[in-house]
């Protein structure tokens, strides 16, 4: 079987302990994702923390229209925002948990999951699920 490819090659570092790739603005502010094109001028690449706390969340119960291009065979999924202390709050898939277990401020950690048969994407899971 072929190794799944990242949904975007510039989203996270390709290593055993991957990190999301953000940017550092000239004023020190951290942004996610790393800006592209002219907007990237003067923005320094900044690797984001792998751990944070849950800021908010919801479920996606129906298959979104385009531009979503996940599997036709739709399974509801969770998304949320995870606050990386001192850095930025990132929007992400939430995995290995259920709605009733989620609460504000719970510790979360980065993981890479399969998106479809060919591609992978990033997600956060409760630290306790590791």
């Amino acid at each position: 079987m072929q190794q799944p490819k990242p949904i975007d090659p510039n989203l996270w570092t390709n290593e055993a302990q991957p990190q999301l790739i953000g940017g550092k603005l000239p004023d020190g502010k951290i942004v996610f994702p790393m800006p592209e094109g002219d907007a990237a001028a003067e923005v320094e690449q900044f690797l984001l923390s792998r751990e944070g706390t849950l800021w908010s969340w919801t479920s996606q119960e129906f298959r979104p229209k385009l531009p979503y291009d996940g599997p036709e065979d739709f399974e509801p999924y969770l998304i949320g925002y995870v606050e990386l202390p001192g850095e930025v709050i990132v929007e992400t898939r939430i995995v290995n948990t259920t709605l009733d277990k989620l609460e504000l401020g719970m510790p979360m950690a980065l993981t890479i999951i399969s998106f479809d048969t060919e591609r992978s994407t990033y997600a956060f899971q409760p630290e306790s699920a590791q």
Binding site: I7, D8, L11, P33, E36, A39, W55, S56, W57, T58, Q60, P64, L66, P67, Y68, D69, G70, Y77, I79, G80, Y81, E91, R93, E103, L104, F115, T121
Partner: peptide, 28 residues
């Protein structure tokens, strides 16, 4: 002004934004 993966990944829905905004607000 957003990268393509953001839409492909199933995170570009206005309904999700409103749900996450009220989810946090309800708890605060």
């Amino acid at each position: 002004g957003l990268p393509s993966w953001y839409g492909q990944n199933g995170m570009m829905l206005t309904t999700q934004f409103f749900a996450m905004k009220i989810q946090r607000y309800m708890r605060l």
